[in-house]
Amino acid sequence: MDDFKSGSNLEKVLKAGHFALTGECGPPRGANVAHLKEKFGHLKGMVDAVNLTDNQTAVVRLSSWAASAIMVQEGLEPNFQMVCRDRNRLAMQSDILGVYSLGVRNMLCLSGDHQKFGNHPQAKNVYDIDSMQLISLVRKMRDEGQFFNGEPIDESPKLFIGAAANPFAEPFDFRVYRLAKKIAAGADFIQTQCIYNMDRFRKFMSQAVDMGLTEKCFILAGVTPMKTVGMANYMAKSVPGMDVPESLIKRLKGAEKGKVAEEGIRFCLEQIEEFKTMKGVAGVHLMAIEWEHRVPEIAERAGLLPRPVMAAGLEVNK
């Protein structure tokens, strides 16, 4: 991991050995750019890069590439998300070239939630390629300077390639192998699903360390502070692949009236504290859903501020 693959701020932070912090932002369900910029404002200087979700939960939103481009203009670093649900390999490659030309340097490759969950369940899905193949596609474009079909690209997109991992979904024993596959396919960094079950995560990480995966890839531990008991119950019962232990729900229930959110943040801070010293964990991915304005406070209390300023900053393509 000597030369920079993309020169993104996130890549530089991670390679310099800093404990990284990434945020997340959902583009609006409309063209309200002013509101989007307001959300960016909360995150500026607080995180190393910000994920921009791609029609998350299969609900139509302002496109992740456009939101990423706006973010570049606003002086923050986007982590452009792309799902396999909505695009075939032609659209994927042209959008990859497109975002790169607009200054995007990080990209997260995902399968995407099935459209059944979203607001257009009547839609035809694509799934031409899967997230694993998408990772190898981006790597091929970057490292081999070739399109997926092997034809040369005149100027290839240099992107820092991310992927997701869910240590909690079944079958549990296979999850670390799937992580290994993503790394073999070309993932430079991993952002995990929201972690609540620390025991399971510790086990997952020790497996990943034993397999040497953390030498090849940066793993950012995913956290989402619980705002309410209702949110915890919902995540425990209704979100597939989410593991919320009963002990956490009890703890939130035990909080004083009006202090549940504070208890949720405290749990999150304890997690971050443990991640800082957990072997193989290179940073935290903070998904504060519709809570962007609390990110500065959480980052501050977690002792993650100020964020490192890397030399040369963001290299925007001419």
């Binding site: 939630d113 099935h114 694993m132 979904a169 079944e170 799937r178 699903q193 692949g241």
Partner: peptide, 21 residues
């Protein structure tokens, strides 16, 4: 597979059931 994944399972696999139902 609801998503025709050739490199599954995705994160929506839930106790042997698909996230869609």
């Amino acid at each position: 597979c609801s998503k025709s994944l050739l490199n599954g399972p995705c994160g929506g696999s839930d106790h042997g059931k698909c996230e869609i139902s």
